[in-house]
Design a protein around this nucleic acid. Structure first.
Lengths: 346, 346
DNA sequence: GTGCGGTGCGTTAACGATAACAGCGCATGG
DNA sequence: CCATGCGCTGTTATCGTTAACGCACCGCAC
């Protein structure tokens, strides 16, 4: 953290060159009408000559408000979160904000420090994909700036959030498999402590109940954290006595791990899963994916946040919960096609 | 850009509560040894009670140096760039910097404004994946802060950059196809104005020359910008009189478009391409991919930048050019396997 | 000529934190 | 008993910008 000296010309320098005070330079740059045309031109000339740029840090200090919002995601390498970030960026730019981005790498214990740092940098608001279930640090942050949660809901916090139709999407995709006649569907899930994990399991369950099929308890695996753990879990399931006839995966990483396992085992099973992903349409596998617009989650979150920022003085509205719609897309399965049907009982 | 009022307690507030001056609070927070234990405790107690956080904006102004670096990428939705961003973030965090991220969406005309904005926000340095070939705005930015280019080289600019072995990687992958006996390899490339496009074509060409095979001029397509344009170009090539026996794609998006085209056409051809991508190993296609560590590009770029920041006073070193290694990975092709060989002449 | 409004610009005092310096009290030594 | 020094803390000025106010000057009306 070396100090930076000689950081370039200031308004005073510009003023000296244009033979006016710094205040007049400020007025010119602000497009204040109370400046004569001659002066204005002299100032612009001096700005150009010196390559002067207004110091946003000093402005922030004087004016209040840094023009930055903070975004904390759990894993930027996952296209889901990078698209979410793009959505945030899009709306932020539209409203003149910049985005300070941090990646928590799904390590909940790092999150408090990250957030403190963002608050110290005077972000005007935060959008967070919380990594863990403890959210005390978010409550602390809310003392300073508004916080909007994305993809995962608040736990005992009164704040806005944007969610996906986790329950509904999981239920619908599972229902597709059930409608195809499957009764032994394995469940490959992320840690149940995560909201999405729990909620998607609930949807999986509900779909079974609706058609009166008992879920295959022995085929439920939770706590899968990435593609590799999902691959291992899938391989185990394939070796089990009561082999599944289809798989349900709670996110893109898990689906990919399962696909890899099937490929290596030289076999195939219909898969339903949350999140669409690149090339899902060309795998030639019977896939039933819960697709949705990750950008939209970011856009909605940013809009909720900016709405609060623009009405800071007004009485804060009650916390809002926005839901982004999902839709099921099917690949390699045409209705009436036998490919997706369970094999005759082994 | 609403002004923010009542932005929380200041050092004066903390000082008043702890019955000391703001200066002493500053000293305590800075871990200055010249403060008595009793005072230190009172200050900490006051900080806790008020939920005080040091205002980084004010510190930046006083100390010089905002503790932020700017990153401009062309397309965050592409895993290549999100990984690059992760690499930058990793090193930045290690050295106590934060990352201000912007996406230029491959629109070269937006880039100057984005960069001006980052400079205004007092970033101490910039890492840029330049979207176009005009780089005058980068020269302007360099008047204020050091700039490091990533993935694409400077054009008439004296600055550090981090590149991939574009030429070498393309040559090697092409050589694999040639070694398999292919002589009619289609080239599917991004716009030749982009350095990577030109360089990878050069590698493609060189590989041909080395084995004395004339490149198939009629099968060269350039200017493909995304998966969809690549798909269309591939479909056309498949219908051409002189059909290719293999494809070379200059990036992940183009490979994916080509794969989709083959899938839809119900046919298959060996593909070589730059960039690895998710699930490339389970497609069951003969793929020869130039793989490399995108994170590493970000890390190296960040290190080059931070090195300059930490030696700001010293004479600036000559501009450096770092290259990240590539390696070829092959899927669905075992040596001696007939799958990757060209079909007997049609 | 005096007064009055308006135009165009400068001066002052912040925003919050901190470097540099000054000052106070107490102990120690001559 | 006073000089000297050290340990601890406060005061002042500053980073670059800007809101609020003030002042000089011009023109116009009475």
């Amino acid at each position: 953290m070396t100090a930076r000296r000689g950081s370039g010309p200031t308004m005073h320098d510009v003023g000296k060159l244009a033979q006016v005070s710094a205040m007049t330079v400020s007025r010119v740059l602000k497009n204040d009408p109370g400046v004569s045309e001659a002066t204005r031109e002299r100032v612009f000339a001096a700005v150009d000559r010196l390559g002067y740029r207004r110091n946003q840090t000093a402005r922030s200090l004087r004016l209040g408000g840094s023009g930055m919002i903070g975004l904390v995601v759990t894993n930027l390498a996952n296209p889901f979160y990078s698209r979410l970030a793009l959505g945030v960026q899009e709306v932020a730019t539209e409203y003149g904000f910049r985005m300070l981005l941090s990646n928590s790498a799904e390590q909940a214990d790092r999150e408090p420090d990250i957030i403190d740092g963002l608050v110290d940098h005077q972000v005007e608001g935060l959008i967070v994909v919380p990594a863990g279930s403890r959210q005390q640090h978010l409550a602390d942050a809310m003392r300073h700036v508004p916080v909007v949660l994305a993809a995962r809901p608040p736990a005992g916090l009164d704040t806005d959030c944007v969610l996906v139709e986790d329950f509904h999407g999981a239920r619908e995709a599972t229902a597709c498999l059930l409608a195809d006649g499957h009764t032994r569907i394995a469940f490959l899930g992320n840690p149940p402590a995560l909201y999405t994990g729990a909620e998607r399991l609930r949807g999986f369950w509900a779909a079974h109940e609706e058609v009166g099929v008992e879920p295959a308890h022995a085929l439920i695996r939770q706590g899968l954290v990435d593609s590799a753990t999902a691959e291992r879990a899938t391989l185990e399931l394939l070796k089990a006595a009561e082999r599944p006839t289809a798989l349900f995966c709670t996110n893109n990483r898990i689906s990919q791990g399962a696909i890899r396992a099937l490929y290596k085992a030289g076999t195939t099973l219909p898969i339903a899963g949350f999140d669409d992903f690149d090339l899902s349409d060309v795998l030639g596998l019977p896939l039933t994916l819960v697709s949705y617009d990750a950008d939209e989650i970011g856009r909605r979150a940013a809009r909720l946040l900016i709405d609060r920022l623009e009405h800071r003085d007004a009485a804060p509205p009650a916390s809002r919960r926005v839901t982004v719609a999902t839709r099921v897309v099917r690949h390699g399965v045409t209705s009436g096609d036998e490919q997706g049907r369970p094999a005759a009982d082994a």
